[in-house]
Write a protein that binds this DNA or RNA. Structure first.
Lengths: 195, 195, 195, 195
DNA sequence: GATGAATGAGTATTCATTCAT
DNA sequence: AATGAATGAATACTCATTCAT
C-alpha cells in the first residue's frame, strides 16, 4: 500500500530537526564526548533511530554546527535590515543573540570543533568559511557605524572580531550561570565600541 | 652510598612538570578526547610512566587546569605590582598573556572543562573559585583605573569580565591562526575600556 | 466480487520463488553475512516484504538450501532415467549441472551451512539426510556402471563421493572464473571414473 | 628498566602464532561470522589482547589464510623433493595433507574468503596469486608423472586442478565426519589420476 | 623507576525483526 | 499486501588502568 509521500517527507524533516535540536543541546553540555545514546535519549528515541537520519556521529556534529552558523547568520542579516543607527543594530543583535539559549549551545560546539584537532581539515575549512561570511556582515555594520558616527574609528576587521567575541562569550557566561549578562552589560558593550 | 634524596625529589618534580607540559598541549589540541598515550608520546615516555606521576586522567586534567590558572594569576599579580597608570598595567597584561602560546592551551582546556558536564560539581567549584580570585585581581585594577581616570566608568565586575573575555579569546584566535592579534589590537582593546 | 483464490495463491507462490532466487544468489555471494535487505533489494522489494513470506532469516536460508538440494536431486533422477551406458549418464549429469549457475550458488551456500557451527544440529541433520539421498542416487549409478563395465571397480560409496566432489567443485571454480571447466574437463572426469 | 629485548620479541612472536592457531580453528568452524571474542576465548585471552597483535578482524583473517597457503605450499614442496615415481609423491601429498586437521580448517576459511564478496578485490588477488603458485607445483608434478608413466595423459592444468580439488574436499568431508577418507580412498584417488 | 602486555568496561555502529500506516 | 520507521541486541574496536618484569 503506497503511503502519503508528502506527509512522509514532512515527518522525516521534522524528526531530523528534532534530532538536531537534541544533539545541539547535548553536544553543548557534554562536548565531543557526547554519546549517540545521550542524544537519542534527549530526543526521546532509540540510538538506532538517530542512525536512520545521520550516517555517523561526525555527520550529525557537522550538521549541528552548520545549522548554528546559519541561524546566527540569519540573525545578523535581520539586524542589518533594520532602520536606524548602526549602534542600535548592534544593540539589537546583542539582545537578540543573548536571549536565545540555543545560540550559546551552538557556539560552545563550534568552539570545540574549531579549536580542536578532531575534525578533518577539510571540514574545518568549511566551518571557517561560513564563519568568515558571518563576520563579513558584522564588518559591514561596523563600517556603517563609522560612517554614521555611532561606532569608534579603527580597523573594522578587528572591531568586528572583538564585538563578536564579546557577545559570544557573554552567551557562554550567561548560560553557565556565571554573570548574568543584563541590559547594563549590553549598554557597556555598545559604549565600548562607541566613539 | 646513600642516594641523593634532594636530587631525586627534584628529578621527580621535573618529570612531573614535563608531563604537565605535554598534557596541556595535547589536551588543548585534542580536547577531553585526549588519550593518555597521546600525552605519553608527547612527553617522550610510555603511558605507564604517566601513571606513576598521576593517579588518573582526571587528576592529570585537573592539575593542568590548576597550573594554567595559577600561572595566569601570577601574571596578573605581576602586572598589579608595576608602577604607573592602570591602563598601562592592562596593556602589560594583554601583551604578556598574548605572547605565550601555553596560555591559549590552558584556556582552551579550561573552557571545555568548565562549560561541559564532564567533571564533578565539586571539581568545577574549585576551578570557578580560582577563576573568581583571578577576576578579583582584575576588578581591583579596574577600580584603580577608574580612580586614576584611565578606565571608563561602569560596573567594575562587568568591565573586568569583558576585558578578561577579550584577551582570552584573542589568544585562541591567535593560536589557531585566525586573526593575528597584534599591537594595534591591544591599542584598540585599551581604548575600549578607556574613558 | 469474490477474489480469484487460485490466482492469489499462485501469485504468492511466485513471489516466494522470486525471493528464494534472490536469496540464493545473494547468500552465495555474501555468505551467511548476507543482510535481509540485500536480498530484498535483489528481489526488487522492501525488507518488510521478505518477512511476509519467511518468518526469519534462518528459515529463508534453510529454504534456499532445501530447494538447491531438491533441484540437484531431480537432475540426478532425470539422468538415471536416461537410456544408455552409466558413463553417458555421468556425462549428462556433469554437463547439466555445470551449465547452471544457480547450482554453484546453492552449493556454496550448502558448504557454508554444513561445515559451519551456525545451524542447529537438528537442521544440519535434515540437510545431511537429503545429501545422503542424493548420493544414494549416484551410488546406484556407480553400481550400474560397474555392472555394464563403464565405471572402474572399487567401493561405490567412495567413487560416488569423489565424483560428486569433483563436479561440485568444478562448478565453483567455473563460476568464480578460475578455470573454465569445459568439455575436455568433463571428458577427463569421465575417464577418471572409467575402467 | 630495560627489558630483555630478544626474549620480548620471541614471546611476542609466539603469542602471535597462538592467536593465529586459535583464529584458524574458529574461523573454520564459524566462518566469517566468527566473533573476535570467540577467537580470544579459544586462545585463552581477552579480546583486547587480540587487537594488540592484529589491527582488525580482517587483518587477522588474511593472516590466517596466508599462513594456511604457505604451509600447504611447503608440504607440496617437500613432496616434490622426494625420490621416486610421481605417483608416489602424490600418494605422499594425499596422506600428508589428509593427516592434518589444520589443513581442513585453512581450506574452509580459504573457500569462504575466495568465493564470497566480503574481501576487497585486491586482497582476493593476492590470495589467488598464492593459490596459483601452489597449483604450479602440482602441475610440475603432473608433468613429471606423465613423463615417468605414472600419471595419465591430459591437460596438466586440468589434472592438477582435479587432484587438488579432490584432496581438499576429502579433508573437509573427513573433518566433518562425513566419510572417513582412508587409505583405500587414497588408493582410488591415485588410480584415478593414473594411466 | 620504566615499560608494555593484558584486561575489560565503554561506545559507535549495524541489522534482524516488528508493526503502524 | 507492502513499506519503511523504530527498536535494541549484538559486535568490532578503543583506551584507561593495572601489574609483572
Amino acid at each position: 500500500m503506497p503511503r502519503n509521500l508528502l506527509r512522509d517527507t514532512q515527518m522525516r524533516e521534522k524528526r531530523r530537526r528534532d534530532i538536531l535540536d537534541a544533539a545541539a543541546s547535548v553536544f553543548a553540555r557534554r562536548g565531543l564526548l557526547t554519546k549517540i545514546d545521550d542524544i537519542a535519549v534527549e530526543a526521546g528515541r532509540s540510538h538506532g533511530h538517530v542512525y536512520s537520519y545521520f550516517k555517523s556521529k561526525e555527520e550529525l556534529l557537522l550538521a549541528v554546527i552548520k545549522r548554528g552558523q546559519d541561524i546566527y547568520g540569519e540573525q545578523l542579516q535581520m539586524a542589518l535590515e533594520l532602520e536606524g543607527k548602526a549602534s542600535d543594530k548592534f544593540r539589537y543583535i546583542a539582545s537578540k543573540v543573548l536571549s536565545q539559549e540555543s545560540n550559546a549551545d551552538s557556539y560552545m560546539v563550534l568552539l570545540q570543533a574549531i579549536f580542536t584537532d578532531l575534525l578533518d581539515d577539510e571540514e574545518k575549512q568549511k566551518i571557517r568559511q561560513r564563519g568568515k561570511m558571518n563576520r563579513q556582515l558584522l564588518i559591514e555594520l561596523i563600517k556603517e557605524g563609522q560612517a554614521d558616527g555611532s561606532v569608534r574609528q579603527g580597523d573594522p576587521i578587528q572591531l568586528a572580531t572583538l564585538f563578536a567575541t564579546l557577545i559570544q562569550n557573554l552567551m557562554l557566561l550567561k548560560i553557565r550561570e556565571y554573570e548574568p549578562a543584563n541590559e547594563t552589560t549590553i549598554d557597556l558593550l555598545i559604549q565600548m565600541i562607541g566613539p
